[in-house]
């Protein structure tokens, strides 16, 4: 009986903490880069939201795919229409957890591993991302670059000369997370 009470208390404590210590942003920046000898292509997305729960070390990122802006509108059209199929899959997301020990009370820069699931183009895949956390007194800045192999996410790029798209796209993320006000 004591165990049950103990367990419930633990759980309650957990739930209580979940709601209190959430850092988030709705104006994150995600950039994608495709580099080939023929052409370098990049796009920015500012319709990205991210959240970090310092109590549970849970992490979530939500990207609205239509928000990717290319310098060339034709590329943007192809990106949405042919590759990402944005109308079918409007959002990409990542949910995971920081697997390293980290003290959020102490300011400083930390290199951590985040293990979780990346969902893109309707395909879910497990991924461990190396991220840099700069913890300040009232904010956490996250830099999380990673690579995406297009074939893994069933993004089909025709092998033609005029398609100058890399097989592996590098993705850079920068989120300035602020404490969530209830």
């Amino acid at each position: 009986m004591r165990t049950i009470i103990l367990m419930s208390l633990c759980l309650l404590g957990l739930v209580g903490k979940t709601q209190a210590q959430v850092y988030m942003t709705t104006t994150g920046l995600t950039q994608i880069f495709s580099e080939t000898p023929m052409e370098n292509i990049s796009a920015d997305n500012k319709v990205v939201s991210a959240a970090l729960n310092t109590a549970t070390k849970d992490v979530a990122v939500r990207i609205q795919v239509i928000g990717f802006k290319f310098p060339n509108k034709l590329m943007e059209e192809h990106f949405n229409e042919n590759y990402m199929e944005t109308e079918k899959f409007p959002t990409s997301s990542f949910k995971g957890k920081i697997i390293d020990v980290i003290d959020f009370q102490k300011s400083g820069t930390y290199e951590v591993n985040i293990k979780g699931v990346l969902e893109m183009h309707g395909v879910k895949q497990e991924k461990t991302i190396k991220a840099k956390l700069q913890i300040g007194s009232d904010k956490i800045v996250v830099d999380a670059p990673f690579d995406v192999k297009l074939a893994d996410f069933k993004v089909d790029v025709p092998k033609l000369v005029f398609e100058k798209i890399a097989e592996v796209i590098s993705v850079k993320n920068r989120f300035i997370l602020l404490p969530k006000t209830q």
Binding site: M24, T26, T56, V61, R62, E76, T86, P90, K95
Partner: peptide
């Protein structure tokens, strides 16, 4: 907890319309 965070995010940020291209 992760799903909860994700749900919070979709609440916090309004979806932008997807214009047909």
């Amino acid at each position: 907890g992760q799903d909860y965070l994700l749900a919070e995010l979709s609440k916090a940020q309004k979806d932008i319309p997807i214009y047909t291209t």
